[in-house]
């Protein structure tokens, strides 16, 4: 049976509470994983593993591939990043790889150091919903 948006949010919330040691009340849809919830780079791998576990059922495995949720190895490519900012090609690739993320504000900024702020609780929920085929 398909999960509702609220059920997906509750599971994601539980994953973030366990992975980051934050209070449930802090995990709001708009909370940014890094700046609001204190996630560091290794936490992204932890979150990925925990999402796999939380959404896997006996009849439906849920496995997030490497780079599927958080694209990797983009920064070192000069076609994608120039002078510390994503190029048009870099932005196009980010949007293609992360349809679960809202790029409206980032498209103006484009700074590499701001990319981690793209990941909100809502973007995680959208990613899960999309992967579940909702």
């Amino acid at each position: 049976m398909a999960l509702t948006s609220d059920e997906i949010f509750k599971k994601v919330q539980g994953v973030l509470v366990d992975a980051l040691g934050v209070d449930e009340g802090d995990v709001t849809p708009d909370a940014v994983l890094t700046t609001d919830l204190g996630a560091e780079s290794i936490d992204f791998l932890d979150i990925t593993f925990r999402l796999d576990k939380a959404f896997t059922t006996p009849d439906r495995p849920f496995k997030i591939g490497q780079g599927e949720l958080f694209p990797e190895n983009l920064m070192a490519n000069p076609d994608l990043v120039k002078d510390g900012k994503f190029t048009d090609a870099g932005m196009a690739l980010l949007k293609e790889k992360m349809p679960h993320v809202n790029f409206a504000a980032f498209d103006i900024d484009r700074r590499v150091e701001s990319v981690s702020e793209l990941f909100t609780v809502k973007s995680l929920c959208d990613f899960v919903a999309r992967k579940l085929g909702h």
């Binding site: 780079s41 290794i42 791998l45 932890d46 958080f70 990797e72 190895n73 920064m75 070192a76």
Partner: peptide, 12 residues
Amino acid sequence: LMFSHIDANRSG
């Protein structure tokens, strides 16, 4: 515990 393969780190 969580382990990282550090040559595959996200920060490059």
